[in-house]
Amino acid sequence: MKLYDQEVASRLLVGTALYSSPAVMKAAIEASGAEIVTVSLRREAAGGAAGDAFWRIIRALGVKVLPNTAGCRTVEDAVRTAELARELFDTPWIKLEVIGDDETLQPDVVGLVEAAARLTRDGFEVFPYCTEDLSVVGRLVEAGCRVVMPWASPIGSGQGIVNRAGLRTLRARFPDVTLIVDAGLGAPSHAADAMELGYDGVLLNTAIARADDPVPMARAFALAVEAGRLAHESGLMGARDFASPSTPVVGTPFWHVGAAE
């Protein structure tokens, strides 16, 4: 899958939050096969070393990082946070979040488009977290985003894909944009579902981190993403309203014999 000018083999991107311990996080990321992990940046207390300790683990994993602007509610805050992230992580990549509603963590799509345009002009490679709205995605693409990340359902909700028709339309209308389903996936079947719809990848965190046993769950998601992608590339049959026998009808034993009695 192509993410701006970089080619990555794994179509599963994972978050680094909510794990019970750093050791479990590390093992789960390894089991997921992900090449890209999301990270945030936060204030460090004087003399604090939490950031350094976390960063050592991420560096040791040898993965690419996609910093986020999680928690930002205004364009200004998101742009400033992105600038700090670029300085800290030395990457043009930014997972752009501008949150518009605290209950649903729904993106503020108006602010998102504005922030994406500003950051793109400033040389960032923006991965906007957005809704599945066709016009909004169109504006993000116009703003220069070559990767767009619509939600399946609200962050951390685990509901899977709520608006299947919307996501299908996006895929059909933006065949050349890298589309990643981000947020709301709760089960490996949800990830496979997104991949079967033709999405290029999926990004998730809670469903792995909050599983009873995150390491095998990470592996389950990796398998589901691979299965869903393979299914998409193989051409899925269309659904139909009526049954159609799979076993040949011709030559059925006792055909019409019963009727003769």
Binding site: G15, A17, M25, S40, L41, R43, E44, F54, P67
Partner: peptide
């Protein structure tokens, strides 16, 4: 002044 470091994120 803001002083920031990496943290866990989704």
């Amino acid at each position: 002044v803001e002083i920031v470091t990496p943290r866990q994120g989704g």
